[in-house]
Lab assay of single mutants.
Amino acid sequence: MKVIFLKDVKGKGKKGEIKNVADGYARNFLFKQGLAIEATPANLKALE
């Protein structure tokens, strides 16, 4: 799953980066902790 990092995550990505991560890791950790959001077209446009 492609995500946009909202904060730096050690070993995974830095704020503003778009990367592929495992679906479960994204849903169960990154999204719940507020560290990333899904890289949807609307979210990508908002990032610009």
Score class of each variant (00 low, 15 high):
28 N>G: 10
37 I>Y: 05
16 G>A: 05
43 N>Q: 06
28 N>R: 10
6 L>K: 02
44 L>T: 06
5 F>I: 01
39 A>H: 05
3 V>N: 00
41 P>F: 09
3 V>Q: 00
20 N>A: 11
7 K>D: 07
15 K>N: 05
31 F>N: 02
26 A>K: 03
17 E>M: 06
38 E>G: 04
11 G>I: 01
17 E>N: 04
48 E>N: 11
8 D>L: 03
11 G>D: 09
23 D>S: 15
2 K>V: 12
40 T>V: 04
29 F>Q: 09
15 K>V: 10
11 G>Y: 07
28 N>Q: 10
31 F>V: 10
36 A>T: 00
23 D>F: 12
32 K>W: 08
13 G>M: 04
18 I>D: 01
32 K>T: 13
34 G>I: 02
23 D>T: 13
4 I>M: 07
17 E>A: 05
33 Q>R: 13
10 K>W: 13
33 Q>N: 15
5 F>V: 00
29 F>E: 14
22 A>P: 15
11 G>W: 09
31 F>L: 12
5 F>R: 00
32 K>I: 14
45 K>R: 13
19 K>L: 11
3 V>M: 03
5 F>E: 00
18 I>N: 01
14 K>A: 09
15 K>Y: 06
11 G>S: 06
19 K>N: 05
18 I>K: 02
34 G>E: 07
33 Q>S: 09
44 L>F: 04
21 V>M: 09
39 A>K: 02
46 A>Y: 12
34 G>Y: 07
14 K>V: 10
17 E>Q: 11
21 V>K: 00
38 E>W: 06
33 Q>V: 10
8 D>Q: 04
29 F>S: 07
10 K>V: 13
21 V>H: 01
26 A>N: 04
38 E>Q: 09
25 Y>T: 06
39 A>W: 12
15 K>F: 05
11 G>A: 05
29 F>H: 12
9 V>I: 08
12 K>N: 09
22 A>Q: 14
19 K>S: 08
9 V>E: 01
33 Q>L: 15
25 Y>V: 08
36 A>N: 00
33 Q>F: 15
40 T>L: 04
27 R>I: 15
20 N>V: 15
7 K>W: 08
32 K>H: 09
6 L>Y: 01
40 T>D: 07
16 G>K: 02
8 D>Y: 07
12 K>E: 13
44 L>I: 15
33 Q>W: 15
8 D>M: 03
10 K>H: 13
46 A>V: 11
19 K>E: 04
44 L>N: 04
44 L>E: 06
2 K>W: 15
9 V>S: 02
37 I>P: 00
1 M>N: 05
29 F>I: 15
8 D>V: 02
6 L>G: 01
4 I>R: 03
48 E>M: 13
18 I>G: 01
8 D>P: 04
43 N>V: 07
31 F>D: 03
17 E>Y: 02
3 V>P: 00
42 A>S: 11
31 F>G: 02
43 N>L: 06
4 I>T: 01
13 G>R: 01
33 Q>T: 10
41 P>S: 10
9 V>A: 04
10 K>A: 14
20 N>H: 13
47 L>T: 07
36 A>G: 04
10 K>N: 12
4 I>S: 01
13 G>K: 01
45 K>L: 14
9 V>W: 04
45 K>V: 11
41 P>R: 09
4 I>N: 01
46 A>P: 05
44 L>V: 13
28 N>I: 07
23 D>I: 15
29 F>V: 14
6 L>T: 07
30 L>T: 00
12 K>I: 15
32 K>F: 09
17 E>K: 03
22 A>D: 15
9 V>T: 04
48 E>F: 10
35 L>M: 08
2 K>H: 09
17 E>F: 03
22 A>K: 12
2 K>N: 10
35 L>D: 03
2 K>L: 14
44 L>Q: 07
10 K>L: 13
7 K>T: 12
14 K>S: 09
8 D>S: 09
29 F>A: 08
7 K>R: 14
26 A>W: 12
10 K>F: 13
36 A>L: 02
16 G>L: 05
48 E>I: 13
2 K>P: 07
30 L>G: 00
24 G>N: 14
26 A>D: 09
21 V>E: 03
31 F>W: 02
47 L>Q: 08
24 G>D: 15
38 E>I: 07
19 K>W: 08
46 A>I: 13
37 I>S: 03
20 N>Y: 15
9 V>G: 01
26 A>E: 13
21 V>W: 02
5 F>L: 07
2 K>M: 15
6 L>E: 01
16 G>Q: 02
36 A>V: 06
28 N>M: 11
37 I>H: 04
15 K>L: 08
7 K>M: 11
7 K>N: 07
16 G>T: 02
6 L>P: 00
1 M>S: 05
35 L>P: 00
41 P>N: 09
23 D>G: 11
18 I>A: 03
21 V>D: 02
4 I>W: 02
47 L>A: 08
8 D>K: 05
34 G>V: 03
18 I>H: 02
25 Y>K: 07
27 R>W: 10
32 K>D: 12
47 L>W: 14
22 A>E: 13
33 Q>Y: 15
24 G>S: 15
21 V>P: 00
25 Y>E: 08
27 R>D: 05
29 F>R: 07
17 E>R: 02
34 G>D: 06
13 G>D: 02
13 G>Y: 12
16 G>H: 09
11 G>Q: 05
3 V>H: 00
12 K>W: 15
20 N>E: 15
8 D>I: 03
38 E>L: 09
40 T>F: 05
41 P>A: 12
3 V>T: 01
47 L>F: 14
48 E>G: 12
40 T>E: 03
23 D>Q: 10
33 Q>A: 11
46 A>H: 12
6 L>S: 02
13 G>S: 04
12 K>V: 15
40 T>R: 03
46 A>T: 12
14 K>Y: 12
22 A>S: 15
8 D>H: 08
3 V>E: 00
42 A>D: 14
43 N>Y: 06
9 V>L: 07
32 K>S: 13
23 D>K: 13
19 K>H: 10
11 G>M: 05
36 A>H: 00
37 I>V: 13
17 E>G: 02
21 V>Q: 03
22 A>G: 10
39 A>L: 05
32 K>Y: 08
7 K>V: 15
45 K>D: 10
48 E>V: 12
47 L>N: 08
42 A>L: 09
17 E>T: 06
4 I>F: 06
29 F>N: 08
44 L>W: 03
44 L>A: 05
38 E>A: 09
31 F>Y: 07
18 I>L: 06
39 A>Q: 02
48 E>R: 11
39 A>F: 09
25 Y>R: 07
10 K>S: 11
24 G>H: 14
43 N>K: 06
42 A>N: 11
43 N>H: 08
45 K>G: 08
10 K>G: 09
17 E>V: 03
31 F>E: 07
14 K>Q: 11
28 N>D: 15
48 E>D: 12
25 Y>H: 06
21 V>A: 03
3 V>K: 00
41 P>Q: 11
7 K>F: 14
30 L>Q: 01
35 L>H: 05
27 R>T: 10
15 K>P: 05
40 T>G: 04
4 I>A: 02
38 E>N: 04
46 A>E: 11
21 V>T: 03
46 A>M: 14
43 N>I: 06
27 R>N: 10
7 K>P: 01
43 N>E: 05
35 L>Y: 10
27 R>G: 04
47 L>D: 04
10 K>I: 13
30 L>K: 00
39 A>G: 05
11 G>N: 09
33 Q>I: 09
41 P>I: 10
40 T>Y: 04
25 Y>L: 08
22 A>M: 11
14 K>W: 08
46 A>N: 12
48 E>Q: 13
15 K>S: 09
5 F>S: 00
5 F>G: 01
40 T>M: 04
43 N>T: 06
39 A>D: 02
23 D>W: 11
6 L>A: 02
30 L>Y: 04
6 L>F: 03
11 G>L: 05
24 G>I: 10
17 E>S: 05
2 K>E: 10
17 E>D: 11
34 G>K: 09
2 K>A: 10
13 G>Q: 02
3 V>I: 11
14 K>P: 01
42 A>P: 09
19 K>I: 10
24 G>W: 15
20 N>P: 08
41 P>L: 12
21 V>Y: 06
3 V>S: 00
19 K>T: 08
38 E>M: 09
44 L>Y: 03
2 K>Q: 12
7 K>L: 09
44 L>R: 07
3 V>D: 00
18 I>P: 01
4 I>V: 08
20 N>T: 15
12 K>D: 07
48 E>H: 10
30 L>W: 03
15 K>M: 10
13 G>E: 02
39 A>N: 02
36 A>R: 00
19 K>R: 12
30 L>R: 00
48 E>Y: 10
23 D>R: 13
2 K>G: 06
1 M>W: 06
16 G>N: 07
39 A>Y: 12
25 Y>W: 10
45 K>I: 14
3 V>W: 01
37 I>G: 01
44 L>M: 11
34 G>L: 08
8 D>T: 11
2 K>I: 13
45 K>M: 13
35 L>K: 04
15 K>T: 09
18 I>E: 03
34 G>H: 07
26 A>L: 13
30 L>A: 01
2 K>Y: 15
27 R>K: 13
20 N>L: 15
6 L>M: 08
35 L>A: 06
27 R>L: 14
9 V>D: 01
16 G>M: 06
36 A>Y: 00
11 G>P: 03
14 K>G: 05
37 I>F: 03
32 K>R: 11
8 D>A: 06
36 A>D: 00
11 G>R: 04
25 Y>P: 06
24 G>R: 11
39 A>S: 04
9 V>Y: 04
25 Y>G: 05
19 K>P: 00
40 T>H: 06
46 A>Q: 12
1 M>R: 07
47 L>H: 10
18 I>R: 02
